[in-house]
Design a protein around this nucleic acid. Structure first.
Length: 554
RNA sequence: GCGCUCGUAGCUCAAUGGAUAGAGCACUUGACUACGGAUCAAGAGGUUGCAGGUUCGAGUCCUGCCGAGCGCGCCA
């Protein structure tokens, strides 16, 4: 029995009990929560249903729990139901009913864990969106990992996800980038407000290789050449880094295109028409304070050029016109001031501010020998994605970035993540998968079938405590995926995988799977092998949601 | 000054208002003629920054204070 099925059973039983006593079933919550208690003596599962509903019914919680316990005890698949504490209901499942989870997993295979919470929802996921003036920094790298994982998690819940990178190729920072390239090409020092780092010289040299006469052109054409070729090269490098990191985008959206197509102008006109803009000091301001922002924002500067937010305004408009129901932005902590602004923009278009959801990721620091790593070898300024990948590899980098909540600033100790021991969480989880793969290979070598029709497996034989723990942990996976999607928190998947790996290793330590010596395979062998196959499947599915490999051998 | 995020074991971090706040590391002590010991078991480690409040129940929600990071531009 899956937790979801158990929750349904508890609720329908509760309905029966209330009806029989002439009480109002409306007092019951729509969905009953069935949790795995922290302490094993509190049963396999526990529900607080009686505590939640007692007040509305005007009944003592323990008394209500007692009625439910009595009714549940006689239900199919329930081994016991007891009242505990202030009115908790502690449940134990019969082994064969519980073991059906293994069967479900094997039947659903790679689909196990998927749900339909967001079926049909069109989601735009915008992340990284780093300026094309240099390599991706650690903050962007965090989003490359977390954003991609969130995309996978939302997809698993049925959402139609578009990953999008907003390529900020208009404005002053590109001009600074171009001036830096030109200076490097001439062999002159980089301007004060320019970009340093070895990559500037590399790109400048490559521009010259492609356009040998670039420096001889009139200043305007020269700059245009460096701009086009240089930005193109920088952007290709960013895309390549992301691809090697396992993160690919569906759309690379150019800010420039919004200006060139007239979309910015059009959006601004519309806001003017609805009197959401006003003229002051020669500039056009958005009345964003009317929509919850803490100050009004300049949209068109007094020199007539659009401010940065003008692009955002047109871009959000564009996303909604493309039919996205939900637009998620993933930004660094230094951009948290955007939340109110973006929601105000949505509101100004008479749209629901809730279609805009902004996730803020806190800073990432690297530690080496216990000390912060500040300098990049290549960028000359801050640490880049390549630096991290060079140091610990893609799998460890993604995992390390994903496993913590983005709300917390994160320290990554490079020494830990290069270790091949179980204080390195990614190895601990991957090792469990490799160990299971090895075990299943070994079974095949012994001529023991690893794929068996469910009706030929007696799941009721899986009665060991460690087997029960492992099965119940496997049964949690769909709820973990759903929670991860709902809360936009992929780190829950990683934490769950660590728990699952631990449950598996404990099981493995206590429960011999394969026969020894000349012993024959028994029905228990078969049941345990199915459990192993299910565990391997869930580990693979979970790692897949993180974009981390599930190795057969390590 | 205002705003956002955070403050949990020596360290890195978990915990969707639930019961005795959990993992890993580090420390102490054990388990390999057994399917991968890259594992497992046991011990020790806490006033969840402080003070109030909300309720059957608060690390979690509310208020105030203390501390840290990051913002508060006609930059992008």
């Amino acid at each position: 029995m899956t937790p979801a099925a158990l929750a349904d059973l508890v609720r329908s039983t509760a309905v029966d009990v209330l009806v029989a006593r002439g009480l109002d079933t409306a007092a019951l919550p729509a969905t009953v929560t069935v949790e795995r208690p922290r302490h094993p003596e509190h049963g396999d599962y526990a529900t607080n249903l009686a505590l939640q509903s007692a007040k509305k019914l005007g009944v003592n919680p323990r008394e209500l729990a007692g009625w439910l316990a009595e009714a549940l005890s006689s239900r199919e698949g329930i081994a016991s139901a007891e009242v505990a504490g202030p009115g908790f209901l502690n449940l134990r499942l019969a082994a064969d009913a519980q073991g059906q989870v293994v069967r479900d997993i094997l039947v659903r295979g790679a689909d196990y864990g998927r749900g339909d919470r967001y079926a049909g929802l069109k989601v735009n996921l915008e992340f990284v969106s780093a300026n094309p003036t240099g390599p991706i920094h650690l903050g962007g790298t965090r989003w490359a990992a977390v954003g991609d994982a969130l995309g996978r998690v939302l997809t698993a819940e049925g959402a139609e996800v578009t990953r999008e990178y907003y390529f900020n190729d208009a404005g002053a920072q590109i001009d600074r980038f171009v001036r830096s390239l030109v200076a490097a090409a001439k062999g002159e020092p980089i301007p004060e407000d320019g970009y340093g780092g070895a990559y500037i010289a590399d790109i400048a040299a490559e521009v010259l290789r492609r356009e040998p006469n670039a420096l001889d052109l009139p200043a305007e054409q020269r700059d245009e050449t460096f701009r086009q070729v240089g930005v193109g090269l920088m952007f290709a490098q960013i895309k390549r880094s992301l691809h090697e990191f396992g993160t690919d985008f569906d759309i690379y959206f150019h800010e420039d295109s919004l200006h060139k197509s007239g979309a910015v102008e059009q959006a601004v006109e519309e806001l003017k028409k609805h009197n959401h803009l006003y003229l002051a000091d020669g500039a056009w301001w958005l009345r964003s304070t009317e929509f919850g922002d803490d100050k009004d924002r300049v949209v068109i500067k007094s020199d007539g050029s659009p401010a940065y937010i003008a692009g955002d305004i047109a871009y959000l408009r564009n996303k909604r016109e493309r039919g996205f129901d939900l637009c998620i932005y993933m930004l660094g902590a230094d951009h948290h001031g955007y939340i109110a602004r973006l929601k105000a923009v949505a509101a100004a278009f008479d749209d629901d501010p809730n279609v805009v959801e902004v996730l803020i990721g806190q800073m990432v620091n690297l530690l080496k020998d216990g000390k912060p790593v500040r300098m990049s070898k290549r960028a000359g300024t801050v640490v880049t994605m390549e630096d991290l990948v060079d140091a610990i590899g893609v799998d460890a980098a993604r995992y390390a970035l994903i496993r913590s909540s983005v709300d917390s600033a994160l320290d990554i100790d490079l020494d830990v993540w290069t270790r091949r021991t179980n204080d390195n969480p990614v190895f601990y989880v991957q090792y469990a998968h490799a160990r299971l793969s090895s075990l299943l290979r070994h079974a095949t070598d012994l001529g023991i079938p690893t794929e068996v029709a469910p009706e030929n497996v007696d799941f009721g034989l899986l009665t060991h405590d460690r087997e029960g723990d492992l099965i119940r942990t496997l049964g949690e996976f769909p709820r973990v995926v759903a929670g991860s999607a709902e809360l936009r928190e992929p780190h829950r998947i990683a934490r769950y995988l660590e728990e699952l790996a631990s449950a598996y290793h404990k099981f493995y330590d206590s429960c011999r799977v394969l026969p020894q010596g000349d012993e024959p395979a028994t029905p228990l062998t078969t049941a345990r092998l199915q459990l192993c196959a299910a565990a391997r499947q869930v580990l693979a599915n979970g790692l897949g949601l993180l974009g981390v490999s599930a190795p057969e051998r390590m």
